[in-house]
Amino acid sequence: MSGGRMMRVLLTGVSGYIGKHLYESLHMEHDLVVLSQYKQAYEDVSWMRGDIFALEDVITAMKDIDIAVYFLDPTKRSSKTMEASYNDMNALAADNYGRAAEAMNVKEIIYVAGAVEDDETLRILRSYQTPVRVTHTAIRRKGMLARFQSARRDDVRIIRRFKIPASWTLEKFTAHYFDYYKNVLPGLSNVEIDENSYYLQGAKRDLIHLKRRTALSNNDRQIFDIAGGELATIRHQHTGTLEFRRMLGTEEIMVCIHRYEPSKSWLFYQLLQAPFHALTMRIFEVEMRIEKFNEEQRNGQTKTYTPHR
């Protein structure tokens, strides 16, 4: 209790093993708010429809919250296709939690220990101003890599982390990303830019139309809505986005695709589109590591370049 009222506590879902355990421990003494894309069965919680991987959803959920409990259940996925390592998924979600808690003046974050990524998670959460406390009891969980699975929505989420040269800004990285796509297939691929609209083309056809969301874009984040193109299905309720994010205090950038719905069949996506995108991003990752290595060499740092495995 705080000042005669129940503490308002945020949980990220209560349907999995961890969430159910926390619900049973907290619901009698606290006012629970649950952030989830799907409505929960419990009647004594306030449900906030949202996605832990979407910063704006997490900020909305943290309004008037006293304590935010952070954990990421590796057995739960919010998209039909999740192309990401658990480590990168967790880093993005933790960054959302830290940013949102600071923005909404949350009193404290409680981190549920027990993941392989505990050290990195705590570093990310503590890079913001909200105090972070760690549970004494660890709930063991093992990170997973999930790809195709059943889900309530036929969408794709992709999360990839890139190391960048120390001197690079997010703006420079974003420009380099689009230049890379423009030249990935000489004579076939291209990017046309018209103010805040970006048209990713193949064989002179608009495959993906991106529209920069200026109100949310800044030095730390660049947000593009997926607004059209032959390879995208557009639904007003679930606009897909491409996000570039600088991780605070690091030389790392997250590139994330959220809620993207392919227009072609899932067989086409699985056999052609997804493998091609994964290959091009793998090559781009190697290119960025070489850029970083070359800058370090110019600055007199002696390191041996080894490809990321």
Results as ranks from 00 to 15, higher is better:
211 K>V: 13
88 D>R: 00
277 H>F: 10
59 I>P: 01
128 Y>T: 04
237 Q>T: 14
191 V>K: 04
302 T>Y: 06
200 L>S: 01
278 A>I: 08
91 A>H: 06
134 V>Y: 01
60 T>A: 13
161 R>P: 01
176 H>K: 12
291 E>C: 12
236 H>L: 11
280 T>S: 10
155 D>F: 02
259 R>M: 09
52 I>W: 00
142 K>P: 00
177 Y>D: 01
102 E>G: 08
152 R>L: 13
302 T>K: 13
118 D>Q: 06
241 T>D: 10
273 Q>R: 08
147 R>P: 01
25 S>F: 07
143 G>C: 06
285 E>M: 11
169 T>N: 07
237 Q>E: 14
85 S>E: 06
213 R>M: 07
121 T>K: 02
12 T>P: 04
103 A>S: 14
56 E>N: 14
246 R>E: 05
168 W>P: 01
259 R>Y: 10
273 Q>P: 02
201 Q>A: 00
173 F>I: 06
103 A>V: 05
189 S>K: 01
41 A>S: 13
150 S>H: 12
31 D>Y: 12
72 L>N: 09
61 A>R: 02
138 A>I: 06
141 R>A: 02
115 A>I: 08
19 G>A: 06
285 E>T: 13
230 E>Q: 15
236 H>F: 08
277 H>S: 04
228 G>H: 10
41 A>D: 14
234 I>K: 08
244 F>K: 05
204 K>L: 05
71 F>Y: 15
289 R>Y: 12
94 A>V: 01
308 H>Y: 11
166 A>F: 08
157 R>T: 15
226 I>M: 14
107 K>R: 13
280 T>Q: 12
260 Y>C: 00
18 I>K: 03
11 L>P: 03
213 R>C: 07
189 S>A: 12
224 F>S: 09
4 G>N: 08
216 L>C: 03
44 D>E: 10
170 L>W: 04
200 L>M: 13
225 D>G: 05
42 Y>K: 15
264 K>W: 02
10 L>S: 10
171 E>K: 13
132 V>L: 05
45 V>C: 04
212 R>L: 12
134 V>H: 04
